[in-house]
Amino acid sequence: MIQPGSHLLGLEGMGAREITHILDLAMSFEEILERSVKKVPTLRGRTIVNAFFEPSTRTRVSFELAQKRLSADVVNFSTGGSSLSKGETLRDTIANLEAMKVDMIVVRHSMAGVPHMLAMHTSASVVNAGDGSHEHPTQGLLDLYTMRGRLGDLAGRQVTIVGDIAHSRVARSNIWGLRALGAHVTVCGPRTMMPKRVEDLGVEVEYDLLRAIRKADAINVLRIQFERHGTPNFPNAREYMRLFGITNEVLRHTKPECFVMHPGPMNRGVEISPEVADGPRQVILQQVTNGVAVRMAVCYQFAGGVTQGTEEESAPPRVPASRAASGRPKPGSAPRVAAGA
């Protein structure tokens, strides 16, 4: 059985309190990244395996950096170098990892549900680093963190997600997280890339880009792919750019403070024009920086930082008062690790 609270499989089902707790933790970890010695002993003696069954650069590096900054012992493996290519089943691979007594498994897989399966069969904590078109909860959290950093409380805010919603795990995690925090979400993209009954996730569906972004406080632009199972699902990049591409011209129709996010990697000139990708309205590299802090918070929360070692040693650093700027929710005096999980 899956132990609730010991895994991060998705943002679906998570409440505002749990999410806010992780974002507050991330705020306290962000400070460490500014130091000259970017390392704390918080997860010393903990072993984390990053199991990437699908190619990934930024997510894997981001997790690895986060884990190393917390002094965890980290092992990486990806499909090419593992037994998966030798015909071993996923179940066997899990059993082997389990037998090696690791504390946490961070898993990325091209198929939805693999982290669930893992969580069902291991006593280690499982963190989903992206499974098929299902969820990418740490990306969702870092997007929330980025938005909260700029907008403060997200309740009542308007966020528009543009692109291939059907095949996007980033979209799903964003939708669940934003809905939990009380934001309004509009999804916008081609009809061929809109999943059935998406409105039942609690979002508005809009096929007209200008209408979709008019009231937006933030726009999250998804990477686009024009072919699935050999059948094209859109005429071409030109038609896409014309209807859904985020350009400076499009941004003229938004509120002036509205900003643009992208989970990467970007197709410049397809879903986002180069001048927006490098322009003043985007926060794309800020998202990457925030990703490390958020993943430190997630590893701390789910690798069970307090069960071993002393409380003092494993507690995260306190946030300097100056960093808890007004408009941002204040983290608790000391993050409660067991609670909220």
Binding site: G113, S133, R197
Partner: peptide, 21 residues
């Protein structure tokens, strides 16, 4: 049905599993 693994509807959307209409 090519590439699909469950009924296409609300649950395939939530679970991110390719659907069969």
């Amino acid at each position: 049905s090519r590439g699909g693994h469950m009924h296409e509807g609300y649950w395939s959307t939530q679970l991110g599993i390719p659907g069969i209409p």
